[in-house]
Amino acid sequence: MTPPDTGLVIVVLAPHDPMTRGQLRRMAELARDHGHRLRWEEARGGPGAPLRTVAGLAGPLRRARRIVIGDPFSRYVQLLLPLTRARELVVVDDGTATMEFVSQLARGERLVRWHRRGSRGARDLAFAPVSASTRRRLTPNARRSVTVFTAMPVEAPPGVDVVRNDFAWTRAAFGPPRLTRGTDLVGTSLVETGVVDPERYLAAVAGLARAYGATRYFAHRRESTEKLHRIASGLGLEVVRPELPLELIARRGPIGRTVLSFPSTVVHTLPLALAGTGVTVAVCDIDPVWLTERASPRAEGFLSEVTDTASDVRRLPAMPLSAPSAVNTGHTPQATHPCG
């Protein structure tokens, strides 16, 4: 049976990363199954792709009454936003970046991802007028409303409506999951973004797996193949690369009775998606000594904020940790306390 047309057109600006593309392909199938029309744009597919994408979307963007965007930090989104005359703008994002976006919007600052350092290169300077235009368009006025739909704990700037995502659709559409007797560990891309030292991260994963009996490691879509190989071969964890967002995977099951995570989106979203299932979500803080010299000065405070504002999670007690020989890193970081 063909689902009814909802009138919603979803535009995917396809990224280069293979894992992200794979997840988006599966989410596109779900969207079509629920009656939504979808346009898959290879917006990054070569020198002429950006112009073709902008030209192809200009008409629909001008005619739309409501525009929903998923990543206000995306430069592609910022390029497209000036084309719309929509009276309703909605930002839908359950990522930790939403917390920074709302704060920057309230302070009138330029939109910069929290893990980036403050220095501005030539590309940043050239793009500054576009970024400033985006910030103005995402500021509500008499002609335009702005809504943020998110599960993250944010305080609405003046005039912005915040609607909480309680994952009711996810709970209704999937599960309840079958629970295993084991513990699962959720990975993070903090190493790949240059925030956390890779050897200290591997040592932390090893320590958590040993202390809490974790057997599976759910990889973040941006984690490197090399790092995941070391986790699988050196630590003996089963590495799972989810084909859908983790909230849907966990809801479909099977999932461990305890899920361990570092500070990330999932410490806010998984308790909502798994409400009533008996699953415990636990969070391990990032010790400041894990941070690299390249980490943004904002990193330590932001990661602490992600943990401190999470509800319905268990804070793991501090424990001494050193890199095990099984990781085979070539050098051993000094002992530290990863979970405080």
Rank of each mutant, 00 (worst) to 15 (best):
N165M: 06
R116H: 13
L246A: 03
G70I: 10
E100K: 15
Q104F: 02
V160S: 00
S296I: 06
P47K: 13
A250P: 01
D285N: 10
Y201E: 07
N141V: 07
A126Q: 06
T332A: 05
S311A: 12
G253S: 11
R294G: 11
S119T: 09
T309P: 00
R252F: 00
T269N: 01
N165Q: 09
A168W: 05
V195R: 01
D17A: 12
T96F: 08
I231S: 06
S322A: 14
M19G: 09
A335Y: 06
R110I: 02
E300F: 01
Q23H: 06
D285M: 04
V195W: 03
V102Q: 09
M319K: 11
V279N: 13
P297A: 07
L51S: 12
G187F: 00
P3D: 04
L111I: 03
A295C: 00
L24C: 01
V90I: 15
D93I: 05
G45Q: 12
R110Y: 08
F127A: 13
R75H: 13
D5W: 07
A49S: 14
L185I: 00
G340A: 10
N328S: 13
E42D: 14
P254Y: 03
E305R: 15
Y217I: 02
P198K: 05
A204P: 00
R251Q: 06
R210V: 04
A132K: 02
E300V: 03
V162E: 11
P242E: 07
R120D: 09
C339A: 06
P317V: 04
V54N: 04
M99G: 03
A156R: 02
V313F: 11
T292D: 05
L57Y: 12
Q334N: 05
T269R: 03
F149D: 04
R143D: 13
I69D: 02
G175L: 07
G207N: 03
R181W: 11
D166F: 07
N141F: 04
R257F: 04
M27K: 10
Q334Y: 02
D184R: 01
Y212K: 05
